[in-house]
Structures are given as structure tokens and as C-alpha cells.
Design a binder for these strands. Structure first.
Lengths: 239, 239
DNA sequence: CGGACTAACTGGTTATACCAGTTATGCTGG
DNA sequence: CCAGCATAACTGGTATAACCAGTTAGTCCG
């Protein structure tokens, strides 16, 4: 229901400026109650995919200029069958961009306890062997780093990226597949413990940048089936 | 309605794990229809502030670990009376972090036409004199830069940040107040035209970093009354 | 004491009616 | 023929009331 409308907009089926069919018409056409339509439109409105005006028609917005970062999760979901290289690169780059700066700031201004906690998680991530363990360990590491960076925007953005990665197995394997980077994790941990922003940032860069080059993506042969999306099943109308 | 519940959660009135009162109870207590309550909860659910389960109670989530970047807009709105230094710094830092990297990538991989467009906007921004004009010019500049960087995540994140800034006059004046940075804009434009990623990034850094130090915030004497929030008035139920 | 049934919750959906804005129609007076 | 205005036919917004579908906790019976 909500998914259907959303996809129609994201896929370009509706052009910005177009008027979405009226609630009554949609409810009739989709054989569903008008309240269900309203709730769906409310979600689109919150995602800034449509602008609804009392009395007038609900119009489609240009989500590329109005949409928020959270849209990335929906975009990933829609493309989850095939690999969208651009989308993968975008998410990877953003994770690197934020992760590197957060690492520097965490080293520079987090209290010793938080830096030690993040350092420990870095060492734990280095020790993780299989993809699933790496994913969990990396998520915990960067969450701790971002928490130490004391930047709420970074933290919320990371949440969004993690959510997007969780719905996209290829992306997960691209970002979290085991590599020979134990030294970089160790350098990150050491930099964090010393409170050395520069060294920490450089280690973070070595950890996060390589994933950017598509050539280094691992073969997608055996990829985990699919991570559940915690809050909302893809097809479920509400959750 | 929706605002009331959201603020209660964001302000910590509800602790994560708490069960929100039932829809029927809320509708009765707030003297409003149950459908209105449902639509409100749907929005909270989409923002990952609550987890609703059929049959069981709707529970409050820890938004700091589940919330997406778009939450920052709501957080800013809630604090729009007083200045929240941490929130301002977070948004400013993130703008700088993304803007610098986007500038580099725009210079490196955007086609000449897009680089020229961004460069022209940089020169236009340098020419803008008053706060309002600078805000518009800067928004257009960085939008063009991010478009050239060809990273959808950056673009959507920037949208969110712009939205947040628009609801927060102090933040707007902190980020966009006229400064003596004509040379930096010129360097940015030149770097973009040459396709010189390093130079462009350094210029972007000079443009975006200074705003990070609170000392350089301008006196908040005459601040624009308030920018309208385009899609959704703070108190309006629908938007 | 244990297990199954049941009653009393929870959210999810439907139908219907009406209120409140917007807009297009079309009539009327110039 | 055209300008201007009343109105009718849309649009979304809200309200009642009933019921479906899960979950949970109680209670009763074996």
C-alpha cells in the first residue's frame, strides 16, 4: 500500500509536480479503506515525497531536492534485487567521510573511558573472523566512535547508514567482509587511547577508504541470506 | 498532537522500553479521534521513535540508537527557543564534513558543465552581502557542489541539514553570516574549474571550518524573524 | 499444580458521515 | 463580450461506531 505509492514516486513513475490521485480514488482503486490511504500518504509526507494541502491536490515533490537522508533506506530496499553501484558507493563514501571525522574528534575530545571503550571494540573487530561477526563488531565500533565524537548528527546519520546496510546484503559484504586490516584496527585503537586525533583519523581512513574502490569488493558468491530489518518488514504495510 | 507525543519522547519524558498509552486511551485523554492518534503514531514509528506491535503495547525506542538523521530537524525545532550549542556544533560539523568531501569529489569527477555551474554559484555567494542573500546563495552553491559529487547520500543529508538550518535562525546566522571570505570562494571556484580536487577541498575547508568555532559566531542582535518551514508548520497537525 | 480455555486487553481495518478548505463552473450584471 | 461573484463539485481533515486480529493474563477445570 504505502510501499506501492512510494515506489511509484521513487522510480519516477510520478513526475514532480504531478497530482497524486485523490484519497477517495486511491482507496477505491486499491480496494482499501480511505484511512489506510491517508496513513500511507502521511508517511510519504513525512519523508517529504509529497506535499499535501488542505482542499487542493496532493502533489509529488522532487525527492532529490526535498528528501532527507532516511530516504536512502527506502532507495536501497527498492534496489535490493540488483546491485546499484552508485548507491553502494554513495553509502560507502558517506560512512567513510563521517567515520574518519568522528574518529578524529573522538580521539580529541572524548573522555578516557569512552576512548578506551572504542579502542577495545576496534580490537574486537580486528579479531572477528566471519562476515556476520565483522558486521556486528564494526557496527559496535563505529557506534562507539561516533558516540565519543559527541556529535548527534553523526550518530543519527550513522544509524541511518547502518539501517540501509542491514537491508542490503551485498553492501554489507562490501563494507564488512574480513580483510587483512588488523594493523589498521590496532593503529585506530592506539590512536584513540593516546588521544591522537591525527593518527586516529589516518587509521580510520585506511580502514574505511579501501571499501570505496569497487575492485576491492569481495566476490558476492556466498552472501548471507538477508538480515532482518528489525522494525519493519519490507512488504508489511505498517511495521 | 503528533508534536506532543514526539516531544515527550525526545525530551526523555518517556524512557526507552516504556509502553505508550493505548491508542484508545490517548484519543480519549487528548480529546481527539483515534485515527488522529494512529496517524501520529505512524509518524513516530517511521521516525523510529516507537516500535508498535499488533496485539501488544507500543513501546518507546531509544532514539539515539535507532533514530535517523531526519530526527535532527525535530530536535532543532524543539530547541528553537534557546541556543543549544552542542546541536549547533553537530550540524555545523556535519555540513563541513560533507561539504569538504563533496567539493573534492565534485572537482574530481563532475563534468565540466556542472563544475562551471558550481563555480559560478561560488562567485555569486561571495558577492552576496546580507544574511538572507548569503543563505540562499550558499544553499545553492553547496547543492550544486553535492550534485556534482554524484553522491545521493551526501545530497539527501545536505537536504536534511538545510531543512534543520531553516528552522533555526541562530544556526542560519552562524553558518551564513557574511564574512571576509571572498578569496576562499574564489579559490573554490578556481579549483572547481580546474578540476583540482585537493585545492577545492582546501578552499571548502577554509569556507566551512571557521563556522565551527563558536567564538566566530556573529552577534545575534538582528536576526531574521523566522524562515518558514516550507512543508510543515511546527504546530500544524498535517503539514 | 498444570494446562487449556476464555475474557479483556492491544493494535488493524472498515464503513459512513460530515467539516473545511480550494477550485472550476457558470450565471449575472455591466 | 467580458468582469466579477455566487455556487457546486471537488480536495483533504475529522468524527463515530463497529468489528477483525493478535497478545496477554486470568481463571477454571482436570
Amino acid at each position: 500500500m504505502h510501499t506501492h505509492l512510494r515506489d511509484a514516486i521513487l522510480s519516477g513513475e510520478f513526475v514532480p509536480g504531478d497530482a497524486v490521485p485523490s484519497e477517495r480514488e486511491l482507496s477505491e482503486r486499491l480496494a482499501v479503506n480511505r484511512h489506510a490511504v491517508r496513513e500511507a500518504i502521511k508517511r510519504l509526507q513525512q519523508a517529504r515525497l509529497v506535499a499535501v494541502s488542505h482542499g487542493g491536490p496532493t502533489r509529488v515533490l522532487d525527492w532529490r531536492t526535498t528528501g532527507g537522508l532516511d530516504l536512502i533506506v527506502d532507495l536501497v530496499r527498492d534496489h535490493s534485487e540488483r546491485i546499484d553501484a552508485g548507491l553502494m558507493a554513495a553509502i560507502t563514501e558517506m560512512r567513510a567521510c563521517i567515520g574518519i571525522d568522528a574518529a578524529r574528534r573522538c580521539a580529541e575530545r572524548a573522555p578516557g573511558q569512552m576512548r578506551g571503550d572504542a579502542a577495545r571494540r576496534a580490537e574486537a573487530a580486528a579479531a572477528a573472523t566471519d562476515l556476520g561477526a565483522r558486521t556486528v563488531a564494526n557496527t559496535e565500533l563505529w557506534t562507539a566512535v561516533v558516540a565519543g565524537a559527541d556529535n548527534l548528527a553523526y550518530r543519527l546519520a550513522l544509524n541511518t547508514l547502518v539501517e540501509a546496510v542491514a537491508t542490503y546484503p551485498e553492501l554489507d559484504s562490501g563494507l564488512n567482509a574480513p580483510r587483512d586490516d588488523g594493523a589498521d584496527y590496532a593503529a585506530l585503537a592506539a590512536g584513540l587511547r593516546r588521544g591522537d586525533g591525527g593518527a586516529t583519523a589516518r587509521a580510520a581512513e585506511r580502514l574505511l577508504e579501501p571499501a570505496r574502490t569497487p575492485a576491492q569488493l569481495p566476490p558476492l558468491a556466498e552472501v548471507v541470506p538477508a538480515l532482518d530489518t528489525s522494525l519493519d518488514a519490507p512488504g508489511a504495510g505498517s511495521g
